[in-house]
């Protein structure tokens, strides 16, 4: 005990350095967790967070029984699963393809081009989509018209919302997401490939038996992270893509929390916080669960 105390005293400068970030984390990460207790209370501004009356699980029950619950849950889960299932394989395929492009200039150029959209802001991406998909002036609809089809109001069709969201995400992020797989591929021992070539292994077979197992550990981690975030959809983008025509498929937990808590004419802090907390808790359980599962079957895990 005394030894530890001595060590702490000798390292006092380190603790001093760590003080500002520690204070930041306590205030901006942990204090809101304390504030989240209003999910179990009927918050009113006069009594404050601590003083408001406890109501138990009232708000959670209200949410689960509400008319909105199934719609919002369904949209959130479908959108995330769709994003994960489509977004997960593309970067792997791109990385495998690029790995066999032996022309350096070509490889560089493709990488450069496909990374670029990653840095464009979400506002501009959605603005770009609505320009290109505009029913009257957008280039996509003009192409459709030239081909003899009717113009489609893409952004206003509820049944197209999820597909537009997912595909634009792939367009924006596939290049950047494949970086990590390319690095994993470059870490594979070339001797394995040489041996396989000597034995007459074709490229598809080498991809299957050497490359894929080589990037598996990375892929598992990325999949775990994706599953853990399954209730956290790209909130900002969903909000921007929402319009009165597509609410029925575009309302997700996060946008609902935002509307109930901050946009509505009668904002309900407690109810909104309860929904947010509900989401956070399930997300945490999912993350830990999937991680444990991955550890069991693959010896790969986040921590």
């Amino acid at each position: 005990m005394e030894v530890a105390f001595k060590r702490i005293r000798r390292n006092w400068q380190l603790y001093l350095l760590f003080l500002p970030p520690l204070a930041y984390v306590l205030v901006f990460n942990y204090y809101p967790m304390y504030g989240a207790q209003i999910a179990f209370k009927d918050f009113n501004a006069v009594q404050g967070i601590w003083g408001s009356d406890w109501v138990g699980l009232k708000h959670f029950e209200q949410f689960v029984q509400s008319y909105e619950f199934w719609r919002v849950m369904r949209n959130t889960l479908l959108l995330s699963l769709y994003s994960l299932l489509v977004g997960f394989p593309f970067p792997i395929i791109l990385a495998l393809g690029l790995n066999y492009a032996s022309n350096r200039f070509f490889k560089r150029t493709v990488q450069m081009v496909t990374y670029a959209p990653h840095f464009i802001s979400v506002v501009v991406i959605v603005g770009l989509m609505s320009q290109l998909l505009n029913p009257r002036l957008g280039v996509v609809n003009r192409i459709l018209e030239v081909l003899g089809y009717e113009a489609i109001n893409f952004m206003g069709k509820p049944e197209l919302f999820k597909t537009l969201y997912v595909l634009s995400d792939v367009w924006q992020n596939v290049g950047f997401a494949c970086i990590i797989y390319l690095a994993a591929l470059s870490g594979i021992d070339p001797a394995q490939h040489e041996a396989a070539i000597m034995d007459g292994g074709s490229i598809p077979r080498r991809m299957w038996h050497i490359d894929l197992p080589g990037i598996m550990p990375v892929a598992v981690i990325i999949f775990i992270l994706g599953m853990g975030g399954i209730l956290s959809t790209g909130f900002e983008k969903v909000l921007l893509m929402q319009n009165p025509l597509n609410y029925q498929t575009s309302e997700v937990i996060d946008t609902y929390v935002y509307k109930v808590g901050l946009v509505s004419v009668m904002p309900n802090y407690s109810y909104s916080t309860a929904i947010g907390l509900f989401k956070s808790l399930i997300g945490l359980v999912l993350l830990i669960g999937v991680n444990r599962f991955a550890k069991k079957i693959n010896q790969e895990s986040l921590w």
Partner: peptide
């Protein structure tokens, strides 16, 4: 990084 108080508590802060 894994758990947060949510939008409203942060806003209130």
């Amino acid at each position: 990084t894994m758990f947060s108080g949510g939008l409203i508590p942060s806003y209130m802060l």
